[in-house]
Every structure is written in C-alpha cells, then in structure tokens.
Design a protein around this nucleic acid. Sequence first.
DNA 1: CTGTTCGCTCACCTCAGGGTAACCACCCAC
DNA 2: GTGGGTGGTTACCCTGAGGTGAGCGAACAG
Lengths: 116, 116
Amino acid sequence: MATLNRPGAPDGHVCGIDTAMEVIGGKWKVLILWALHERPHRRFGELRRLVPGITEKVLASHLREMEADGIVDRVSYDEVPPRVEYALTPSGIRLNEALEPLAAWGGERREGRTSP
Amino acid sequence: MATLNRPGAPDGHVCGIDTAMEVIGGKWKVLILWALHERPHRRFGELRRLVPGITEKVLASHLREMEADGIVDRVSYDEVPPRVEYALTPSGIRLNEALEPLAAWGGERREGRTSP
DNA sequence: CTGTTCGCTCACCTCAGGGTAACCACCCAC
DNA sequence: GTGGGTGGTTACCCTGAGGTGAGCGAACAG
C-alpha cells in the first residue's frame, strides 16, 4: 500500500487519501458530516443553525455535492411548509468513522503540546 | 465528544476535526505527508519528484507551513550544493496514522460501489 | 565559458470556491 | 395585509490559494 509514486493511476489520484480529500474538501463538509453523525435526519434549517457561519447557498450546494458523492441521503416530504431531511448513507457513516482518529488528533493538539 | 454546537469555542473551532483540516488543508499536504511516511529524511528535489504536479513554490510554502504546524522537521546542512532534509515529527507521524482509515475509505470507494 | 545541480525566493496572474443579497412559492398567525 | 417560517435559486462579487516563469549563488563537469 501507500504507493505514492504512481503517476499512471487512471483517475489522476495517487492514493486513497486524495480521493477522500476531494469528498470532504468543502469548507464546511466535515462539520455537516459531524452534525449528521450526532443525530440522523437533520432538517435544512437545523443544519444551518448547527453550523455557525455557513450561508444558505453554500449549505445547499455542499449538501448536493455530498448527495452526489453518495454520502448523504436527501428525503423530501411533499408538505407545506416544505420539509426535507438529510441523513448519512452507510458510506457516509463509514466516512465519519474514518474521520474519528483525525478528530482525536486535532483535539489532542488543541489542548496544547504539553502532552505528547 | 463531538459537541458540534459550540459557538463559544475560543479559537473559533467547533470540534477537533476542523483543527486537523486546517493543518492538512493544503492541496498537496497529505501527499507530502505520505511521501515522508514511506521514508523519512526526504530531500526537497526528491519530494518534488515524488509529488507529481506540484511546483517548487508551492512545495516550499507547504513545507514551511507544515514546519510551523510542528508536523515536519527541516534540517539544513550547510553544504554546497545545498542539502535540506525533511522528516516527520512525532506529531506528524501520529497525524499520518490518523489519516490511514481515511485512506482506506478512499481506496474502497475507488474500487467501485459494488461492495458496501 | 557554458551548463547543470540544488533549494529556494520574488513578482505577477488566474480562477474557482465561497460570500452577499435579493427573490420565489406556499401557508399560517397576527 | 403583513410578517414570519419553510427550503431553496439566481446573479453578481471578491479573496486567497495556487500556478507561471524568472532569477540567484556557489561549485563542479564538460
């Protein structure tokens, strides 16, 4: 594994990690993922409130990209006022689990370098 | 853990994961990390050859940022022609390990969605 | 005397990802 | 009738990460 020096890879990717980085590359995507991990079936406005600072346009576009990437499910109930719920797919759940060691690393580092 | 809805966090971060994302956010950083993981003590030109497509300017600035973040060590030997070697710090090594599940996820997904 | 290696630095430019703001259709409460 | 809440879309703007190309300073090969 970890065969970095592989320019001949058909998709231009060099190892699994940049495939993953492409999926979570959006500025707010990991936070959306996290919010959906804490509780599935979040609504749009709920996510907007949970991810402080994100705009509606960006939240909508990120959700669409994540849906296209197969990591979130979008369910639209034909009611009024409109109701839409977002949830993680199995792939999204696994992605989130794969993100946990990274979160732990980041958490450690925020507590200061006093405990390596 | 995973207390996403915490706008009062002093550094503006919301959970460990965006701290980590900030560190590996550069376009090529995970690839550099991977190259240094395969073998420590890589030289500048070696890294440039290992990470296909990166320019010298960007490689230099990424390395400096990673050095400032405490995940790579830079050792400059005062010779001529100049020789500089880069290696992972302990923190960088742990970061790389934390990245492995993510790489596995990306690897899986590239092989097609035939095995969920 | 020219070219190459090495590890950068500097000035400049491009472009896409994200920010801003307005608007839509629909219904309810006031 | 007007204000609020639902989940968006559209148009435009703007910043900063990244790309381009040149040069540098010493030594050594040819």
